[in-house]
């Protein structure tokens, strides 16, 4: 029987394992694990494959726990948005207290295992990233300021630091630049989404930039952040920390990202149906980040460099 067929008031206790898995936001987790794994792959030194696997598992579970706690706190606004209304909490399939316990248990477990099995610096950064996402972004910023995803973007930028620290036990310039890359990538990525989902955010009362300042300001901000992002993405190559494969990929895809941002900036549409440039930019932003991190690993494997 499909539990989603039942009215919300009758479905508590009918959650199966897929609902708990959905609490972990597996799609978000994919990019988090990928960026941490790439940083781990290029970090100097050696990590035992089992310990490396444990580190990635802890990153995945920690990110999932943060996602679960985010959904626990945001169940009320998730219920108002079409995109999130069928999540397990707003749909009533999981009790809020169960989601809270699930999130806290997974968060504490992932940090503890990371500390015991890998090292305590990686565990500390994982703990900071979870707390930052839940307390600073979800509780502190999201409902209060249109700068929510600018500052909150730091939460998603921690994984390369964790992957690097898991191998080396310290932090150096390259992982900090990778942190900056994701941090600056987040606003254009989310604002492109927020432009064509503006009605949803507006209905839920979330002060995303398109809701508070309108599409013109948002499009200008997307372009400005992109123009800062692309030079920063080239810094690892310019500083001699990577080779030309990464540098070339960052340059080519950076130009593509700027082209997308210019198309968004030139668009005057106010209806989501007419926002093809915004949808294209959102999709391209995912490809952009994936390609840059993949190029970093290929660069490290093909060219002789020691970061």
């Amino acid at each position: 029987m499909n539990t989603t067929d039942l009215p919300a008031t009758n479905v508590a206790g009918l959650a199966d394992w897929r609902d708990y898995f959905a609490l972990l936001k597996p799609r978000v987790m994919t990019l988090v694990v990928f960026s941490a794994a790439c940083a781990m792959a290029v970090a100097p030194g050696h990590i035992h494959p089992v310990i490396g696997f444990v580190a990635m598992l802890c990153v995945a579970v920690g990110a999932g726990a943060a996602g679960a706690l985010n959904q626990w706190y945001e169940a009320d606004i998730d219920a108002l948005m079409k995109r999130t209304a069928n999540r397990p909490l707003p749909a009533g399939r999981i009790e809020r207290s169960d989601a809270l316990g699930f999130g806290v248990l997974f968060a504490a477990g992932s940090v503890a295992i990371m500390g015991i099995a890998v090292n305590w610096l990686a565990a500390a950064i994982l703990a900071v990233s979870i707390l930052f996402y839940v307390l600073v972004y979800t509780v502190g910023l999201k409902r209060r300021t249109p700068q929510n995803i600018v500052i909150g973007g730091a939460a998603g930028a921690f994984p390369p630091l964790i992957g690097w620290a898991a191998v080396t036990g310290d932090i150096s310039a390259l992982p900090v630049l990778l942190f900056a890359l994701i941090f600056l990538w987040t606003p254009p990525h989310f604002w492109a989404l927020a432009l064509f989902m503006e009605a949803d955010y507006s209905k839920a009362g979330v002060p995303m930039l398109p809701v508070t300042d309108g599409p013109v300001v948002t499009r200008r901000q997307i372009l400005l952040y992109t123009l800062v992002l692309v030079p920063v993405s080239l810094l690892p190559w310019a500083l001699g920390l990577t080779g030309w494969i990464y540098g070339g990929t960052a340059a080519v895809f950076g130009l593509g990202f700027i082209a997308c941002a210019v198309a968004v900036w030139r668009n005057t549409a106010t209806l989501a149906a007419d926002m093809a440039p915004e949808k294209r930019m959102f999709r391209f932003s995912l490809l952009y980040l994936f390609m840059l991190f993949a190029a970093l690993v290929v660069d490290h494997w093909v060219l002789p460099w020691n970061a």
Binding site: M1, T3, L6, N10, G13, L14, A15, D16, W17, Y20
Partner: peptide
């Protein structure tokens, strides 16, 4: 009865995953 069956099936699924 239908809801009870669904409840038991969901609990079994959760227990297996656990």
């Amino acid at each position: 009865e239908k809801q009870t069956e669904a409840f038991i099936a969901a609990r079994k699924s959760r227990n297996r995953a656990l």
